[in-house]
Amino acid sequence: MKIDLHSHTLCSDGVLSPEGLIARAIEKGVDVLAITDHDTVAGLAPAQQAINAQQLPLQLINGVEISTGWQQLEIHIVGLNINPQCPQFLQRLASQQQARLVRAEEMARRLEKNQIPDVLPAVLALANGAALTRTHFARHLVSIGKASSMDGVFKKYLGRGKIGYVPNNWVEMADAIEWIHDAGGVAVLAHPLKYKLTTKWVKRLAEQFAAAGGDAIEVISPQQTPVQKRELWALCQLHGLTASVGSDFHQATTWNDIGKNLYLTDDVIPVWANWPLQGNAVTPA
């Protein structure tokens, strides 16, 4: 069974519609997929509708990825099996969306101060109602020739310490874990090796994530080495956590695709160990 528990649609900073993401997952032989857009659950209903309408052999896991603050760093927490209709949860996500807008306004102001005008209207149009992220800013700046690549934009304008960088104003990590639990879900520390932390700080992050009530660590992501996977699983064992897998899919690239290279060895306890996975069956509406 091929399982991918971390993916994005154009409801946040992915490039595919929810329906397009479902089609891609089917094409790549994925059996179980979690859609985990940034601070929004808007893509879940249309994705499930596409599965039901076409009777596709794919089980959808309701998910979200919440941007959080920890030690003045931005840390992402994935929520899996959340209730996307929970009123309290939706209100909390709305507060994150407002924080995203406030941050975007300040980013645009700083860029305009540095002779890059009219950024916010362009970014809002590009996002088209999606959760605003720095990726939208990067795509716009590439489109107007300020850099030749997304990486170039972050290195010159949007990375920490650059002219367009604005510190995050997200919910604290422990609070996000509580939000997820209150919505009936499990909390997963997303891609812990992407934060460019030293080994000491990754260990500290895992320890404090577990102490705050976290449930699992994303131990399998594309491009990780077998040694890195084993080290992350060792952290799970140390803190009584289970293991998750996720491509963090935004768009197909030469090094990443939905469901690519996601596998766990038999000695690893997966986050889905007690879930009612259905294999090649359509999830009930």
Rank of each mutant, 00 (worst) to 15 (best):
G43K: 00
K146F: 04
G259V: 01
A127V: 05
G184P: 02
R92D: 07
A234R: 13
D182S: 06
D13L: 05
R110N: 08
P222H: 07
A206I: 02
N128K: 08
A243H: 08
Q115Y: 08
V166T: 06
Q98K: 12
R109W: 03
T135C: 06
K203C: 11
V282L: 11
C11P: 05
G79H: 05
A190W: 01
A176V: 07
T254F: 09
N62Y: 03
I75G: 03
N169I: 04
A23C: 06
V41K: 04
V30M: 05
A212M: 02
A273P: 05
A131V: 07
N261G: 14
V142G: 06
H181Q: 14
P121D: 14
S12H: 08
Q208H: 09
F249D: 00
V282N: 04
V245T: 03
M1V: 15
R92F: 01
F249I: 01
T133V: 06
T254P: 02
V30L: 04
H76R: 05
K200V: 13
Q96E: 14
E74A: 09
P167R: 12
G185Q: 02
L141Y: 01
T283C: 10
D175M: 07
H136T: 10
L141H: 02
Q278V: 08
A212T: 04
D151H: 06
N280Y: 12
R92E: 07
M107P: 00
Q88K: 15
Q49M: 14
L241A: 13
L16M: 13
